[in-house]
Design a protein around this nucleic acid. Structure first.
Length: 489
RNA sequence: GGGUUGGUAGCUCAACGGCAGAGCAGUGGCCUUUUAAGCCAUAGGUUGUGGGUUCGAAUCCCUCCCAACCCA
């Protein structure tokens, strides 16, 4: 190398050019992978005597060169494998070329397995193929990447060098897999509703708007999965679920990303009580199948126990306890606002009566619900899609499952009376009658079976189960402002 | 939207008004059981951006950009 040795990219491009001039393809398409790193270790442990030839492939993450031999670490989908590469094994000529490889290059390696003096299962290389020359320098091996912006913008680097991150996203995939398996085992059908909706229903949230040229009209991105899954109930799919992305054009925070993943499921001929059992069983399934434990730990070390019996409390009871006021629900809005001040929470005085109470729930109660808690029977004003409780028609036959100070899963006895549903919608949309999903009412008029329904925030569930501190730690590519501050102000 | 903190070599971090440094990575050597390999040598900087104060600015002040945390 010459005067440009300080520029790593230039050095590597020179190496690339040298390989090409020798007639080698630095991006060879051919590479055999008979075993992953962990599979290779496993077969060796099963039978250390037989000299089995294996082919592994992956990225060089460490290069320890010692004259006529070198140890390298190869990173692949399930971990790392050490390889021992020597002039003896490869031949003088191939070894001379091998020595010029870099950390970051992707290789295929073929050889036999052995155990080093230090006891590590290692591949003794007989041949290698360079399949991708890396032209850029990887982040440091020991500290990895720690700059959060860098981690989110170039997640691929985070995944290469930060093993915690790699494991967390593998765990997320396992969680999704086991949720599906759990529901498939209970005869649920997975379906897919529309992302573009002319009336974004099923929740109260500010939607994203977009224009569809083919139909020359505006659509919203869905904010919930609910109304189309209920149409599936009408259509006779009496156990359905959808797991997918929903979009809410609201704030970003430690707990919110504008696009996030939800699962919603609907089971006919049951109710919110059935959903309680289902979500409990689901969490037990995830604990045993994915975590191997019913206990999870937050970043601050606090333990959350997901086994055993979960606490259940009614919304009203929770409010009475939090406010220490047995007459709370007969107080005037002014009295409630005064009480909120004493509780130390800021509440917008323009809010309606039930919204003031709900502020108490969100700010004083929900954050304290660390261990799993079913909060049942929320006031009817908070949701238009659930059935009223027959004994107390001011509340709904619903629960919100709270864990880790967050709402993880709301579930309802679903409203299937088209007259009540229409009244509830009308109260919600007020004058904006065109914002009512009339086709949904029509569907209910054909008859929807009684059903229990539930939504689970997958990202929050992953935060809980992986012990993550931030929603961005469980979303591969979280929403960020484009580099250079693109877009309007 | 408000407040706080941060942005320095490829990465992780020092320097906090007076010559911009270290470790790893890189480059050139030595080294056939290492594993944050080791030893010797060596290159690498428009200190996020634009302005200001100053004899002198990475450092102090202001604008803007990006991010994190807290609050709304």
């Amino acid at each position: 190398m010459n005067e440009t040795t300080h520029d790593v990219t230039a050095v590597r491009q020179a190496k690339l050019a040298a390989l090409r001039s020798e007639g080698q393809d630095p991006f060879s398409a051919h590479c055999e992978q008979s075993h992953s790193s962990q599979e290779a270790k496993h077969v060796f442990e099963q039978d250390p005597e037989t000299l089995l030839t294996v082919s592994v492939a992956g990225r060089i993450t460490a290069f320890r060169l010692m004259g006529k031999a070198a140890f390298i670490n190869i990173l692949d989908r399930d971990g790392t494998l050490q390889a021992y590469v020597s002039a003896d094994g490869l031949g003088q000529e191939a070894y001379a070329t091998f020595k010029k490889l870099d950390i970051g290059d992707i290789l295929g390696l073929t050889g036999t397995l052995f155990k080093t003096q230090a006891g590590e299962i290692t591949l003794k290389a007989q041949a290698y193929t360079l399949v991708a020359k890396s032209l850029r320098q990887l982040p440091e091996k020991w500290h990895g990447l720690s700059d959060s912006e860098h981690i989110y913008r170039q997640r691929y680097l985070d995944l290469i060098v930060n093993q915690d991150s790699r494991k967390r996203f593998q765990l997320r995939s396992r969680i999704l897999q086991e949720i599906r398996r759990f529901l498939w085992d209970r005869s649920f059908t997975e379906v897919e509703g529309p992302v573009f909706q002319s009336i974004p229903g099923g929740a109260a949230a500010r939607p994203f708007e977009t224009h569809m040229h083919a139909l020359n009209c505006n659509f919203y991105l869905r904010i919930s999965l609910e109304l189309y899954l209920k149409r599936m109930l009408v259509g006779g799919f009496d156990r359905v679920f959808e797991m997918g992305r929903v979009f809410r054009n609201e704030g970003l925070s430690r707990r919110h990303n504008p696009e996030f993943t939800m699962i919603e499921l609907y089971q006919a001929y049951t109710d919110y009580r059935g959903m309680m059992r289902l979500v409990y069983d689901l969490l037990q399934h995830l604990c045993t199948q994915v975590l191997g434990s019913t206990q999870v730990h937050r970043p601050d070390g606090l333990a959350i126990e997901l086994g055993g019996t979960w606490r259940e409390i009614s919304y009203k009871q929770a409010i009475l306890e939090a406010t220490a006021d047995s007459q709370w629900f007969s107080r005037s809005p002014q009295e409630k606002l005064e009480a909120c001040k004493k509780l130390g929470i800021q509440v917008d005085p323009k809010l309606q009566d039930h919204e003031i109470t709900h502020n108490v729930f969100e700010k004083c109660i929900e954050p304290t619900l660390i261990q799993p808690t079913f909060v049942t029977h929320i006031p009817k004003e908070l949701c238009p899609l659930a059935k009223l409780n027959p004994q107390d028609p001011s509340v709904l036959d619903v629960f919100e499952l709270c864990i880790n100070g967050q709402e993880i899963a709301p579930a309802y006895s679903e409203q299937n009376d088209p007259f009540i549903q229409k009244t509830m919608f009308a109260a919600q949309v007020g004058e904006d009658i065109q914002n009512m999903d009339q086709d949904f009412i029509t569907a209910l008029e054909y008859g929807m079976p009684p059903a229990g329904g539930m939504g689970i925030g997958i990202d929050r569930l992953c935060i809980l189960l992986t012990g993550a501190a931030n929603i961005r730690d469980v979303i591969l590519f979280p929403s960020l402002r484009p580099v250079g501050g693109g877009g309007e102000s």
